[in-house]
Design a protein around this nucleic acid. Structure first.
Length: 511
RNA sequence: GCGCCAUUGGUGAAGUGGUUAACACGCUAGUUUGUGGCACUAGUAUGCAAGAGUUCGAUUCUCUUAUGACGCCCCA
């Protein structure tokens, strides 16, 4: 069997719906902030990243996907989005557009040759936004506010913005030297990694996990003390704008972004989500005033932000945010014989044109199994197409929630559906596409309130203890409780994982 | 680049150096139910990640590789 490549993922099923939803929220947000979508190539000349990101960084030396194409060109799969956007900005002379600053966003895959671990894959999808051509502290604040708003609109509660300023090049250099001078006499007190960091990247020492409790670190010089007046002034302005926008943040002098091109404002946004592993930073960004010029464009101040969609999706799922995903269909058409099947094909086509979500049978299931399938798909209505009825230009339609059946004329089927489905969603105030209960008070379909008795199959949102919750059916020997389907048996050690709750009501622990 | 643990069916998984690899879920068919959800019956891996080795014999032991999970380094 051919397997997918290491550190790559197939996104499908529910996860894909979540990703699509995130994309939708992003697009909507970006319209309101007036950023235009930009789509740049996934591969670029290797030189772009070498010059843009820095020749000596690990990113370029070890972690990039470099290859030579058949024409002998040196190609690199993009490890991040900013370099490509800046290249496009320069190449298409966007700096000449009277409409300044240029505000763009991207959403696509990035590649880094790394050992996968929690929240880190070789292929990752990032959303990012950039403002090119403004040095105004308001643009820094806008980027941060948009990022925070995105997380909020996705339903994440515990969001923390860590903010810092590296200052301009002068301040940055002064600080770097101060750090080296400070740590050098005490080099023996630092961990091995930090001893190496001292020359290579002294700022990262502040971030060290091993030495975190070391007094040396706590008393180390802070970036902010080394900002020159201009840099300090602009940092304060950024904060003022954030305050005005009511964006909460904390100053964290230890935020040091990895790339050389950052100066002035830098920030990271983390989500406090249980089970997120060691990489809990959702996204980050900052100002990069030197990059455009460094890549042969005109001196252009820029600020940007990027966040990983994968981590975002994971955070949303871990937080159990309720999303307005479409998880039901309007109608399932059942049939038995060939004539009825043809009619199903015809009806499905017609009703889909009207905008209904219609499904029918394709695998030769019997009638009983077709009903099951309709339930699996959460069909709101079912139609058993019956030759006799069809000859009379009639169809039997069943409301799959109320179980009420009606025989209606085929001519009014579409009308009937729209009337009845609209009735359910009649109270919705949040716009046409919403089927949710959480984001509005309309009590519409997705919430699927259970009103039924013993035979209910309505699933997660229901407390009736019915089938979906996977009631234990494993028989006499098992006592592992209602929510467990681990198949464990009394007298044997339970080996099931975190999702199983059999520990409490189950006797599986007696070996 | 380094470390640690893992890899059994569509799913959760049990298990052993030796005839037909538990159990449960799911799925399919059938019986019954006025056309589904309940119940019952039957079916559902030529196979235990791949390759090599040890052995009379390996899914079970050893090695290599691949992948997954987590951590280190590093971080976009």
């Amino acid at each position: 069997m051919i397997q997918r490549q290491k550190g790559c993922n197939d996104i499908f099923g529910r996860e894909a719906k979540v990703w699509k939803y995130i994309d939708h929220v992003i697009d909507d947000l970006m319209i309101r902030y007036n950023y235009n979508y930009i789509r740049t190539p996934i591969f670029e000349a290797t030189e772009l990243f070498h010059r843009g990101v820095g020749e000596t960084t690990d990113i370029v030396k070890k972690e990039s996907y470099d290859f030579e194409d058949k024409g002998g060109r040196n190609i690199t799969l993009r490890p991040e989005g900013t370099a490509g956007v800046v290249r496009a900005f320069i190449e298409n002379k966007m700096y000449g557009d009277p409409n300044q600053p240029v505000k763009v966003y991207y959403n696509g895959t990035m590649y880094r040759y790394e050992r996968p671990q929690a929240g880190r894959d070789r292929e990752l999808t990032q959303f990012g936004m950039e403002i090119l051509g403004s040095d105004d502290p308001l643009s820094d604040a806008e980027i941060i506010s948009a990022a925070v708003t995105l997380y909020q609109e996705l339903g994440l509660k515990e969001i923390k913005v860590n903010l810092n300023s590296l200052g301009d090049n002068e301040s940055r250099e002064a600080y770097r030297n101060a750090l080296i001078d400070y740590f050098k006499p005490h080099i023996k007190d630092l961990c091995e990694d930090c001893q190496e960091r001292l020359e290579k990247n002294p700022l990262r020492i502040l971030d060290c996990k091993v030495d975190q409790e070391n007094d040396l670190l706590k008393k180390a010089p802070k970036t902010l003390d080394y900002l020159n007046e201009e840099s300090r002034d602009r940092f304060e302005k950024v904060q003022e704008f954030l305050d005005t926008m009511q964006i909460e943040y904390t100053i964290d002098p230890n935020i040091v972004r990895g790339l050389d091109y950052y100066n002035h404002t830098v920030f990271e946004i983390e989500a406090k989500v249980e089970g997120f592993g060691s990489n809990n930073v959702l996204g980050g960004g900052g100002r990069y005033n030197g990059l455009v010029n460094q890549l042969d464009g005109p001196e252009t101040p820029c600020v940007g932000f990027a966040t990983g969609i994968g981590r975002l999706a994971m955070a949303i799922e871990l937080e159990k945010v309720k999303l307005p995903l479409i998880e039901s269909i309007d109608l399932f058409l059942l049939y038995v014989n060939e004539d009825e099947k043809k009619y199903a094909a015809y009806l499905a086509q017609e009703l889909r044109k009207y905008g209904f979500i219609v499904e029918t049978e394709y695998t030769g299931r019997g009638l009983k199994a077709q009903f099951k399938q309709a339930d699996r798909l959460n069909a709101k209505f079912t139609c058993v197409l019956n030759s006799e009825d069809l000859d009379n230009n009639e169809v039997k339609i069943k409301n799959n929630q109320t179980k009420e059946e009606e025989i209606i004329s085929l001519d009014v089927l579409a009308y009937y559906l729209s009337e009845n489905i609209m009735d359910e969603e009649g109270g919705c105030q949040c716009g046409d596409d919403c089927h949710c209960e959480e984001t509005c008070d309309c009590g519409c379909q997705e919430g699927k309130e259970c009103t039924c008795g013993d035979d209910c199959h309505c699933g997660e949102n229901c407390d009736c203890g019915c089938q979906e919750g996977k009631e234990c059916t494993c028989g006499d020997d098992c006592h592992c409780g209602e929510n467990c389907d681990c198949g464990c048996q009394e007298g044997k050690e339970c080996t099931c994982g975190d999702d199983c709750h059999c520990g409490e009501s189950c006797h599986c622990h007696d070996k």
